[in-house]
Amino acid sequence: MRSRVAILLLFPLLLAASCGKPDPDKIKADIIGEVNRTPMLYTVVASAQVIVTEQDAPDSYKRYFGSRVVLVPVKATLKAGVDLSRIEKVSWNADDKSIHILLPPPTIDIESTVIDNDRVVSDVGPFRFDFTAEEIASIASRGRKEIEKLIPQMDLARPASERAAQILADLCEKLGYTNIKVDYPNNPVTP
């Protein structure tokens, strides 16, 4: 009888203890470091924002136990410019002081992202768990992917190339070149 009661007591405790235990080795394996020495000439900076809403699906049985909705605003800082290590062509002529530079296509990077913690809004029913920091991060990562997906549609590439061409043209002018031509893909410009 006693052993049965002990099993009855221990079983739920073991069940509860096995839930959500982090693995320390996994945490260590995720800590990495990397140095990128690619020279980038950033010419445009912008801020992108998206609000991610997550809730139970309309056909989910969980709705009967109370609502569980969260709004997570995500902000990203974007920088656009050209990778100087990928400059397609540089040719110069000392006699007529001319120089011709062909720039590579512009690159747009996400420099940093921020979850606007002060504006995270949630509505959680009494029978539901609150949103954890891990869940909020998981939802925010989807917002980041949405921003990343829409980067090509943002009007950043052309101004980035134009400004990069202008900066390099100014540099060449300081160096004494008078006939300067800086091109970039599909959009040639002669400052």
Partner: peptide, 10 residues
């Protein structure tokens, strides 16, 4: 997309 501004960073 907001705060679109020019910069000159290398």
């Amino acid at each position: 997309l907001s705060r679109l501004s020019p910069t000159r960073q290398l």
